[in-house]
């Protein structure tokens, strides 16, 4: 951890109890021993397939989900096991489902002012309205929208309300949990641009969770690739896209659709199946070795350490 890190998490673990097909109790390791730092003012992208623990990691950092073990540092302070109240306003979240994240029986004004009421007390009514209108303006909505209900807005507008709600408490760090996945393409770019503009103006630090690599590539400074609760590769945007080291990252990149069918047909598809529970976990080997086309005998025996293969480029693979 160094002084430029706003968020530093150390050996973070979170597992959920579950049942397998036969009804035996098992644990789903959603976040499995993750160590990660996010620098002040940067946007860290987090990619991975569904169920890889991206969302759980984001929510555990905000302690909306309590971690099983590990430490979370915010601006140098350990926030595990303390009262989160003073930190709530510094860390915010934008949700994937814009309509589900807004209370259907609340007007936009109250949705946005909820956070202000919870954190900044003693505001007069007029100060409050001024603050709400300013926020609406910042996210590109009209001040008259404040008196409408969430269902009267389109998905993109609802997402803007969600962003305004997060901004209301003047946060430093925002977890964007797939903020554009539920939107159509034209809204996606609008929201991405809005998030970038806001970062430029207000100096936010983002953790941008997505399964859409092209979106992440566009907005992120650094990218972490998650697979079964572990960060398997972490590096700058160029490292991940131009010099991917982990076989899983390569497989993910090969799955990006290409608009040209001729190129698309010639491409090698590295991923064939994600169906089975990887055998590697049980034997203590690399969790990806069952699906990895480069796997060796070593991969099945020992789990790879996260090594720095180039400056700032980390990869958890024996072969990298």
């Amino acid at each position: 951890m160094d002084s430029t890190d706003l968020i530093y998490i150390e050996n973070l673990k979170k597992a959920f109890p579950s049942k397998d097909v036969r009804g035996n109790k098992t644990l789903v390791r959603a976040v499995d021993d993750v160590t990660l730092s996010i620098k002040r003012g940067e946007c860290l992208g987090l990619v991975g397939e569904s169920g890889s623990g991206k969302t759980t990691l984001g929510r555990t950092i905000l302690r909306l989900v309590e971690p099983d073990s590990g430490k979370i540092y915010f601006d140098g302070t350990d926030i595990t096991g303390i009262n989160m109240k003073p930190y709530r306003s510094k860390m915010q979240i934008i949700f994937q489902n814009p309509s589900g994240s807004l209370d259907p029986r609340m007007r936009v004004f109250n949705i946005i002012s909820e956070g202000i009421k919870a954190t900044r007390r003693g505001m007069t009514k007029s100060e409050m309205s001024a603050a709400v209108f300013k926020l609406l303006d910042a996210v590109g909505l009209n001040s008259t929208d404040a008196y409408r209900y969430p269902h009267e807005f389109s998905g993109g507008q609802q997402q803007r309300i969600g962003i305004a709600r997060a901004l209301a408490v003047n946060p430093e760090f925002i977890v964007c949990d797939e903020p554009v996945s539920a939107l159509d393409v034209s809204y996606q770019s609008q929201i991405i641009n809005l998030l970038e503009d806001l970062q430029e103006q207000l100096g936010f630090t983002y953790l941008f969770i997505s399964h859409d690599l092209s979106v992440v590539m566009h907005i992120s400074d650094r990218i972490g690739v998650m697979y079964l609760g572990k960060i398997v590769e972490l590096g700058s945007c160029e490292d991940i896209f131009l010099r991917p080291a982990h076989p899983y990252t390569k497989a993910l990149l090969s799955a990006i659709p290409v608009p040209d069918p001729k190129i698309s047909r010639q491409r090698e598809h590295k991923v064939t199946s994600f169906d089975d529970t990887p055998a590697g976990i049980k034997n203590g080997g690399c969790s990806y070795c069952a699906l990895c086309s480069y796997a060796t005998a070593e991969c099945a025996k020992a789990a790879p350490e996260n090594r720095e293969i180039a400056t700032g480029h980390f990869c958890a693979c024996h072969l990298a």
Partner: peptide, 25 residues
């Protein structure tokens, strides 16, 4: 629901969550 999670993330107290979200809904 996610709006309860959002309220928790904003630091809204349990009492207030019940009064302003759960009861009206």
């Amino acid at each position: 629901s996610e709006y309860i999670e959002a309220a928790r993330a904003l630091g809204v107290s349990k009492f207030h969550i019940i009064v302003s979200h759960v009861i009206p809904n």
